[in-house]
Design a protein around this nucleic acid. Structure first.
Lengths: 93, 93
DNA sequence: TTAATATTTAGATAACTATCTAAATATTAA
DNA sequence: TTAATATTTAGATAGTTATCTAAATATTAA
């Protein structure tokens, strides 16, 4: 499960998409305009983020709106942070 | 830079190695004994972790001892956590 | 110096992935 | 119902990666 999360986060395009979605939800097309890659490639990245439970999508007319899957995003963040925590005397984490 | 970190963390074998190294430093051979894969494969994973600055290595006689690169590990953890933080009214992060 | 031990490097292979173009699907507008 | 718009799916390709076996390197012991 963490593998899928880290794997999804390992691509810079996907991290940028998440940064945009942190600010506001956007349609696939709007997201695509921010990048220099084709619509199918964006679609692929959005799918990876969805499989990783990081984003949520809904159809709104012709568009498909993507948004951060807030609850799961937080839950996953917790897991990641827990993993990264070091249980040592010297650590500040 | 974050790409390299997330990429390194996306493999379960590497995450397990890090969990072991959180407890105590270990030689490549000792680490290898914990897994069912060949020494060269372990060596490969250790190299990926090194490239990502997550671990440190030193030779001690015939062995090469691996340990968490604590300072960089913490620094990188901070970056990851910062990335994962959501700046929203609803968020607890 | 030769043999044994520990680890890495080289080279091969199979699986995965980011990207593309072309085609398919879904919705809205004419 | 036909055309236009938005997005995804299919299929291809090039690059990356996790794994293996075999060979090379480094250190210690005999």
């Amino acid at each position: 499960m963490l593998s899928r999360t880290f794997s999804a986060l390992s691509d810079p395009t996907r991290r940028k998409i998440l940064e945009y979605l942190k600010m506001e939800e956007m349609s696939a097309g709007q997201i695509g305009q921010k990048f220099n890659i084709t619509a199918p490639s964006i679609s692929h990245h959005l799918n990876v983020l969805k499989q990783a439970d990081l984003v949520y999508s809904r159809r709104q007319g012709q568009e498909i709106i993507y948004s951060l899957n807030l609850s799961v995003f937080e839950e996953i963040s917790e897991q990641v942070m827990t993993f990264l925590k070091i249980r040592s005397k010297n650590s500040k984490l």
